[in-house]
């Protein structure tokens, strides 16, 4: 692994995100929506920072997942990824650079949530830690979808249902008990609960669910990468 290659891809991706409005808007829209709702709608029956946590849960699923899958799929579709790999950037270096950049963009948005919520000290650290964990899982899921997809259209058609399921589970589980029972096995639900209720809400099953989710997504990612590598070595567009 070359650090120069990773940093080059990282800065390239940063510059590209700033110019790609469809990606950029996702990292900005959710924190802005959360701020508007937090300051304009304050029903007394809802818990404190309800909208911050709700939108943050949607954000850490949607933004990194769609961002990562869209970026990889676009590079594949426009053949820029092939050119990068031909220039001796390894797939691992590319994923580290791109993933690192999207993770950082995700955490920048997370900081905006924290500012809106007025978090500080231990609460701030806990919130950002949870956001980082959620972003990491979504990032790997997005990478798997991006690597699997041939183009941006197929990436979107795969990532939309996945992100809809995981991002809306925390909200839906409040209205339906059956959904709530299923949702507790999803990382988004567990992280939402940990954010809203604090570290004291962490139980043994929380760690198992989070680790299980991360492992499952990682194994899917590994499988997809292996499949892609075998496929690209065998096939060719003449």
């Amino acid at each position: 692994m070359s650090l120069r290659h990773i940093l080059t891809v990282f800065f390239k991706q940063g510059k590209d995100i700033m110019r790609n409005r469809t990606i950029l808007i996702q990292f900005v829209l959710f924190p802005v929506l959360a701020a508007i709702m937090e300051y304009s709608v304050k029903p007394e029956e809802l818990p404190e920072h309800f909208f911050i946590y709700m939108f943050a849960a949607m954000y850490f699923v949607m933004a990194p997942l769609t961002g990562m899958s869209a970026v990889i799929a676009e590079e594949k579709e426009k053949n820029t990824l092939r050119v990068l790999l031909m220039a001796d950037v390894t797939p691992a270096e590319y994923l580290a650079g791109t993933g690192g950049c999207i993770f950082l963009a995700g955490m920048a948005g997370s900081c905006m949530f924290a500012v809106c919520g007025g978090f500080s000290g231990g609460k701030l650290a806990w919130f950002l830690l949870m956001m980082a964990a959620g972003t990491a899982v979504s990032l790997v899921a997005g990478a798997a979808i991006g690597v699997w997809s041939r183009n941006q259209t197929s990436a979107a058609s795969l990532s939309v249902p996945v992100m809809m399921v995981f991002s809306f589970l925390p909200m839906l589980s409040m209205f339906n008990e059956a959904v709530g029972r299923a949702a507790k096995y999803a990382y988004s639900q567990q992280i939402y609960r940990l954010m809203a209720e604090g570290s004291s809400a962490a139980k043994g099953e929380t760690g198992i669910v989070l680790a299980g989710n991360f492992l499952a997504v990682f194994l899917i990612f590994r499988y997809v990468c292996g499949r892609q590598q075998r496929g690209s070595k065998k096939s060719a567009n003449r």
Partner: peptide
């Protein structure tokens, strides 16, 4: 290598 489809970053 120069590919038939260029493979350039269009926003750059």
């Amino acid at each position: 290598m120069m590919t038939d489809d260029c493979g350039l970053y269009e926003r750059f």
